[in-house]
Measured scan of single mutants.
Amino acid sequence: TGIVNVSSSLNVRSSASTSSKVIGSLSGNTKVTIVGEEGAFYKIEYKGSHGYVAKEYI
């Protein structure tokens, strides 16, 4: 489990790349469930599926 550490919002992406499609966003202080790691990204549970967020903001 981690907490989103941004002042505005954090993009949730379809894969572990900054060039991948943005599938949603999370507000600061949102609790997320981390299910894996891939490079500079965490794989998280997101809306019944999975998404990826940059580690530096969790």
Rank of each mutant, 00 (worst) to 15 (best):
T1K: 07
T1C: 11
T1M: 15
T1Y: 13
G2I: 08
G2W: 08
G2M: 08
I3T: 11
I3H: 10
I3M: 10
I3W: 13
I3R: 08
V4M: 05
V4S: 05
V4A: 05
V4W: 04
V4I: 09
V6D: 06
V6N: 08
S7D: 13
S7A: 12
S7V: 13
S8M: 12
S8V: 11
S8E: 14
S9T: 13
S9L: 12
L10C: 09
N11E: 15
V12L: 03
V12Q: 00
V12K: 00
V12H: 01
V12G: 00
V12T: 01
R13L: 15
S14H: 13
S14N: 10
S14R: 12
S15M: 09
S15V: 06
S15A: 12
S15C: 09
S15D: 11
A16I: 05
A16S: 07
A16D: 03
A16W: 04
A16Y: 05
S17E: 07
S17C: 08
S17A: 08
S17H: 09
S17G: 07
S17F: 07
S17V: 05
T18K: 11
S19L: 13
S19R: 09
S19C: 10
S19W: 10
S20A: 15
S20I: 01
S20D: 04
K21H: 12
K21A: 15
K21F: 09
V22F: 07
V22E: 04
V22K: 07
V22R: 05
V22N: 05
V22Y: 06
V22C: 07
I23Y: 03
I23H: 02
G24C: 04
G24P: 00
G24F: 08
S25I: 15
S25W: 13
S25C: 11
S25E: 12
L26G: 00
L26P: 00
L26H: 02
S27H: 11
S27I: 13
S27N: 13
G28F: 12
G28W: 13
N29D: 10
N29M: 13
N29P: 08
T30N: 06
K31M: 14
K31A: 11
K31L: 13
K31T: 14
V32W: 03
V32Y: 03
V32D: 00
T33P: 03
T33F: 11
T33E: 07
I34P: 01
I34D: 00
I34L: 06
I34T: 02
V35F: 07
V35L: 14
V35D: 03
V35Q: 06
G36L: 05
G36K: 07
G36H: 05
G36A: 09
G36C: 07
E37V: 10
E37H: 07
E37L: 08
E37C: 08
E38S: 10
G39W: 04
G39N: 08
G39L: 06
G39H: 06
G39M: 05
G39Q: 06
A40S: 12
A40P: 09
A40R: 10
A40H: 11
F41W: 14
F41C: 04
F41Y: 11
F41R: 00
Y42S: 01
Y42M: 03
Y42D: 01
Y42R: 01
I44P: 00
E45F: 09
E45W: 10
Y46H: 05
K47F: 11
G48A: 07
G48N: 10
G48I: 04
S49I: 10
H50D: 06
H50P: 05
H50W: 12
G51Q: 02
G51K: 01
G51W: 01
Y52H: 02
Y52C: 02
V53I: 08
V53K: 00
A54K: 09
A54E: 15
A54T: 07
K55W: 03
E56K: 15
E56Y: 09
E56V: 11
E56H: 09
E56I: 13
E56T: 09
E56D: 09
E56P: 06
E56L: 10
E56F: 08
E56A: 11
Y57Q: 09
Y57A: 13
Y57I: 04
Y57V: 05
Y57C: 10
I58Y: 03
I58H: 02
I58K: 02
